[in-house]
């Protein structure tokens, strides 16, 4: 199933587009999605450690703006956002 991840903050450096799409098997979790994003960085950015650190320290939120844990099961085609560490003001 296709999962789209909207990019924010430092994660915007991962693509010229506002989002990245990933193909996950059913019953995957946010942890699996996180690992796929790390694989994406390995493949496209020669394992850029800064990018990987961003992914590891980021939260993910669902399309209704709720932060979801690594154990959250993705059961259908869904959109998420990656929320890197914040710091406005």
């Amino acid at each position: 199933m296709k999962v789209s991840v909207e990019l924010f903050g430092a994660a915007r450096e991962f693509s010229n587009k506002a989002h990245l799409d990933f193909e996950l098997v059913e019953n995957s979790s946010i942890k699996d999605l996180r690992n796929q994003m790390i694989d994406f960085v390995d493949l496209n950015f020669k394992g850029n450690e800064t990018f990987k650190k961003i992914i590891k320290s980021s939260a993910f939120c669902s399309s209704d703006d709720k932060i979801v844990s690594d154990n959250y099961k993705i059961v259908k085609k869904q959109n998420f956002s990656i929320i890197p560490p914040i710091g406005g003001g």
Binding site: F8, G9, S58, A59, I83, P85, I86, G87, G88
Partner: peptide, 29 residues
């Protein structure tokens, strides 16, 4: 509270034309 809770990010631009996303607080508990 905004600093701790609101999803806002800063990218600083410098005189040498480089730029950098600033480190922040993780919402991943």
């Amino acid at each position: 509270e905004i600093k701790k809770r609101s999803p806002i990010w800063k990218k600083e631009h410098y005189k040498n034309e480089e730029s950098e996303w600033l480190k922040g607080i993780s919402l991943n508990n």
